[in-house]
Nucleic acid binder design. Sequence first.
DNA 1: AAGGAAATACCGACTAGCCGGTATTTTTAT
DNA 2: ATAAAAATACCGGCTAGTCGGTATTTCCTT
Lengths: 207, 207
Amino acid sequence: MNCRVLIADDHVLFNDAIKAMLEAVEGITVVGQVSRGNEVIPMIDKTKPDICLLDINMPGQNGLMVAERLKESGSATRVIIISMYQDKRFVTESKRIKADGYLLKDASKAELLAAIEMVMNGETFYDPKLGKDINQHAEDSFIKKFNLTKREIEIIRLVKENMTAREIADKLCLSVLTIETHRRNINLKLGIKNTLSLVRFAETYNI
Amino acid sequence: MNCRVLIADDHVLFNDAIKAMLEAVEGITVVGQVSRGNEVIPMIDKTKPDICLLDINMPGQNGLMVAERLKESGSATRVIIISMYQDKRFVTESKRIKADGYLLKDASKAELLAAIEMVMNGETFYDPKLGKDINQHAEDSFIKKFNLTKREIEIIRLVKENMTAREIADKLCLSVLTIETHRRNINLKLGIKNTLSLVRFAETYNI
DNA sequence: AAGGAAATACCGACTAGCCGGTATTTTTAT
DNA sequence: ATAAAAATACCGGCTAGTCGGTATTTCCTT
């Protein structure tokens, strides 16, 4: 397959690097790169790429808005959103505007190439790390890695939502003392001492 | 020149792309890539790179803390901070810990190569786009928007580093009661009630 | 059925943070 | 020089969380 790709990210270094990486791949041509949202569509009109790799944060115009306008115009160019955000809101919005893919910057080169191939084949590719099922899998391996129980993980999630032990106790119909014991055990297992560390841990491991 | 480079960024895609881009350059070898802060120094010990390209935001340990520890240990590996932040505070901190370079992700491939060459020649390279007026202005407008004082912002930063009021008091040679008063005033101004909210605020507004 | 793990809940004591306030000193702006 | 803002520090009282422990019940695995 021969695939023409346009890269759009506000970080020129990222653009340059992705271009170098993709151009080493048989069958992929990088036709251009832009770093401002409002440069994307004019460049697409000019170079007619098969796929546009599109960051969300860009000066000039937001990547999702660009993608929406592109799709509304009936363009043949497919769009893969490349984002650092795992945030469900961005994923949901990407699906609403019918973006052809959504990849996290945590993804590997291999995953990017897989996304490009699937999208070229007319399929969509949403990063497997997004969504509930990945959370289930993560939860299983996560439980094993840190020896956390299901209840502990549930409580970690509620702490992450900025709930106090009392609020968590009320929500789960348990004693506040139970919650505090769980938190103590969690802190022991994770080697941490306070709420902020726990929340950061939860964010790092995407609980 | 033959230059061995280690890449450290939490986004694997960025790592993979930078690796591909650098390996196409005569005289540069990528000896490894890591995506967690606490993996950096063990990998440096193992691969002995000439230069480490180091992001600031990484799980496990902050890139600047890693760089500081590296410099303090007398390592021969030079450090170029690669950051999306133009923020003067990061630049200042990079200089304080004697990082060999600081490059924005807005920089181009050519600029990265120039930085690598200068640093290999024993010079430092701080991205020319960095400048006082932008960051000073950003901080000024931030102060105005939330009506925060300089001391309050300083304390917010230390809270973000997970320091207790007592630890902050010791560090600033003030009474813990002073710190608690500042925190009270901060919470009042921002309309928040606890440490987690404060830290999230600080992260959202990039303090 | 039995044993082990998870979950629940409590005790006492401590640190940390929050919340209402007041007051004085220092620094900055006019 | 003066006024205002910022910074500093304290009082009393509260909630929240942490830390050492123990004990019982429920659930799951063997």
